[in-house]
Amino acid sequence: MLNEMFANFDMIMTILLRGAAVGSLFAIIAMSFNVVHNATGILNFAQGTIFMLGAFGAYLLANRVGFAVWIPMLILVSIVIGLFTAAQGWLTLKPLRSGVEQNSWLISTMSVSVIIAAILTLNFGVFGNMVRGPVPRFEILGVRTDGAFLLAIGSMFAWYFALRWFLRRTFSGLAISALSQDFDAARAAGLNVGRLQLLAFGISGVIAGSVGFMVAPMISVSPDAGLRYVLNGFVAAVVGGIGNNTGTLIGGPLVGITAALTAFYIGGAYQDLASLLLLVAILMFLPQGLFGRAAARKV
């Protein structure tokens, strides 16, 4: 009886931890959405495959290596993906400058996502690849856990606070914040809108790419998986309120734990259905998300 309870406790802990860890990846994707959205008003559909690019970076350059190789490679991959995403941003924003066509980003970011996935498929095949990272396994509350799980949760908080610092302390960060708070006033003040928007794209790429690299050991590294992350990341962003990074800290784990519980009680194939239903429910009843936009609230 008691043993059974403990066994159950272990199981629940595993589910919650797994859900929270996967959910923090959704939260990170949601944050990378927010950075771009706040600066430009658009959402980058390719964010999920960009995340996957990071994971493939780890597979290619840092599989079964020690920290001495892993860390420089992490930095390299993050920078390269950041530059790539900035370039993608340039391409995406180009037709929007003409002013007439304002919906093209929906299509262009989606086609970039398709292209990235296609290139990855060509080079690595459709099946999932395993990556072994340098962070050791360890025990938490009696549950043996992959180090990458903790890395996932840790990097959610790390990126959350790093973004917070960047957006509130640095000149460029302040400028991006200003852009999202009052676009016209920002232009009147002489903020270089175009450059800041590219910077926002670049940062979103660094966030998604670096985390993809770090958590490669806990995910199935496959080209198609990117789509799953972009969709769940979107749900996390909507749950937390699009544009609100603090909201993602709740939204991401909520989506992740919902998916994990669904997988455990109903079946793994129903995880994405659960996220879809969560998304529809939120849009129908709380379209502003659980927390709305931070900027609109007076604390």
Binding site: F171, L174, S177, A185, A186, A189, G190, L191
Partner: peptide, 18 residues
């Protein structure tokens, strides 16, 4: 029109952008 979520000091700081 100022940037409502930024501090007074940061609002002035952004004046340097031009």
């Amino acid at each position: 029109r100022v940037f409502p979520e930024l501090t007074v000091h940061d609002n002035l700081r952004l004046g340097q952008a031009a």
